[in-house]
Design a binder for these strands. Structure first.
Lengths: 135, 135
DNA sequence: CTTACTGTATATATCTATATAAACAGTATA
DNA sequence: TATACTGTTTATATAGATATATACAGTAAG
């Protein structure tokens, strides 16, 4: 089983975090179906050129989030993420980041209009210039 | 000179960071006027019950951001923050946080509408329920 | 020029995050 | 039940963040 993970050696972002973020995204997005048996920690560590402990940590963290299930001696599987749970997870991830951003705005006394305008500008830039009617 | 800084001993947020955030806010908001002589690092350390090194770090960081000026032997002053620079600073602070939030949205495949709706919800909650017409 | 205040530099202590190796324990199957 | 895979535990190493004391250096005023 091959999992497409890209490691940036030069990044300040910790190794385990790079792996975790990308693997989480693959699961959340449905690119890794429920029940998929992931590579063993040793095999994955070989692919990623890191220690088994680092892979283990990633599996453990994602298991803590309910995205993986692990059975000693058997392996680690993508667990069933119900639509409800998936939505909840996606929403909470984004909500936290948005709340931090709004708090940042409040902390430097950004007005509501000012904040909304900057938000629209960034969304336009990152989501593309297309008119929203396309959705 | 007395500077109103509240330290939360129990917080996981580092001491220097708590001080830095609050002092920065006082400067950006204009509560500390240009030219104001801040307490010496020893006096401030005494008030805050921390070491002079910690206060020194705060002064040094904020000097790096252009918010303070320091002269050895004399003291540390609130520097002139031109309206332009102040706006630039405020804007960049919030922009970074908003960009991180939008990136978080993209990473879990939030649609544009979905993201905007959640943003509006959070803004409404944090800025209050009042109709925007009040501004 | 001494004194009493400023900030500065150096050396160090402690804690946490990150990452590892090696020994241990469960599981499946030939 | 031997073996060849799984994950797990323990002990450790390293780097960076946080915080400190102490000695050093600049400034201003009596």
């Amino acid at each position: 089983m091959w999992i497409p993970i890209q490691i940036d050696e030069k990044s300040a972002e910790p190794l385990y975090h790079q792996i975790e973020t990308q693997l989480r995204s693959l699961i959340i997005s449905g690119n890794l179906a429920e029940g998929t048996l992931l590579p063993s920690i040793r095999e994955f560590a070989g692919d990623l050129k890191c220690s088994v402990i680092t892979v283990r940590r990633v599996y453990q963290d994602l298991e803590g989030e309910g995205l993986l299930r692990t059975r000693q001696g058997t392996g680690t599987f993508v667990s069933h993420v119900g639509d409800g749970a998936r939505e909840e997870y996606r929403r909470e991830t984004v909500r936290k980041a948005l709340e931090a951003a709004v708090d940042a705005g409040l902390s430097v006394h950004f007005g509501r209009e000012e904040l909304e305008e900057l938000f629209r500008e960034i969304v336009k830039h990152k989501y593309g210039e297309e008119d929203k009617k396309e959705e």
